[in-house]
């Protein structure tokens, strides 16, 4: 279980998060939607301590920490409960696909090498890259890189995987394969928080949808409640703009 309470964050005078509460049960897939600047990415990054929140508490499992008072040791301990999939994958450039996955297991979690390699091979097989173990990131396509990124997160078997717009840096043709991979992993019961702009994917995969605007949660509920019958005007505007049918004139 992950619980975030009353999280605040500002850059100078610019308030990015203004008191957000999120509760994620085990096995739940929470999708966070919102326009650029709504604070959704900052929320996700605060959970991994990639941003230091000004106020708020984070609970993962049994442990609770105040986000602005966390010590280095707390931060490392909490980060080991989470995994992060980045928008631009951020694979370790100097490590092969396999080493990208084993790095966190061997160095971060002090796992014996043989065991780590075994887990990493399974994770790469799961994302369809069993034949790319020894490839460096520069030798992989954008979609393959992102799949290694997902394997790296899954292999850590964290309490929650955080996805920060995992498909927005990909070619349109590669978005589909990445989304269906995430969907497949979600069906295994792994807890996830996903920031995305893919509405139909959100509808398919989410057990809960959160719509954020201006640093607060405007609306949350099941995909049907938020995406099909939104109560708030702001949500309706956002969905209308994103889902507006485009007429092609070719």
């Amino acid at each position: 279980m992950i619980e975030i309470k009353n999280i605040h964050k500002s850059y100078g005078k610019n308030k990015i998060l203004n008191g957000v509460d999120v509760h994620v049960d085990e096995g739940e897939v929470v999708v966070i939607l919102g326009a650029s600047g709504s604070g959704k990415t900052t929320l996700l990054r605060s959970i991994s301590f990639l941003e230091s929140a000004d106020q708020g508490t984070l609970t993962i499992g049994e442990r609770t920490v105040e986000l602005n008072k966390a010590k280095k040791r707390d931060i490392v301990a909490f980060r080991k409960k989470t995994a992060f999939v980045f928008q631009n994958h951020n694979l370790f450039n100097n490590r092969t696909a396999l080493e990208n996955v084993t790095e966190g297991l061997i160095v971060g979690r002090k796992m014996p090498k043989a065991e780590a390699v075994e887990i990493a091979k399974n994770a790469l097989a799961k994302v369809g890259l069993a034949d790319r173990h020894d490839y460096y990131p520069s030798q992989l396509s954008g979609g393959q890189q992102q799949r290694v990124g997902i394997a790296r997160a899954v292999a850590l078997s964290p309490e929650v995987i955080l996805f920060d717009e995992p498909t927005s840096a990909l070619d349109p043709e590669l978005i589909g394969e990445t989304l269906s991979l995430i969907k497949k992993i979600a069906q295994e019961g792994i807890t996830m928080m996903i920031v995305t702009h893919e509405i139909s994917f959100a509808y398919d995969v989410a057990s809960k949808v959160i719509f954020m605007d201006g640093g607060v949660i405007v609306e949350e509920g099941t995909p049907d409640e938020v995406l099909v019958r939104p109560k708030e005007e702001r949500t309706r505007q956002f969905l209308k703009r994103i889902l507006k049918p485009v007429e092609f004139n070719i």
Binding site: S48, L50, K72, R79, F84, F86, E103, G108
Partner: peptide, 27 residues
């Protein structure tokens, strides 16, 4: 070396020094 390389190190559970030595320094 891109900031993302540090962040990736942190999110897989490495400390700053581990990230620096194993990921940043070689690059």
């Amino acid at each position: 070396v891109d900031r993302g390389q540090y962040e990736a190190g942190y999110t897989v559970g490495l400390t700053f020094l581990q990230t620096f030595r194993r990921i940043i320094l070689p690059q």
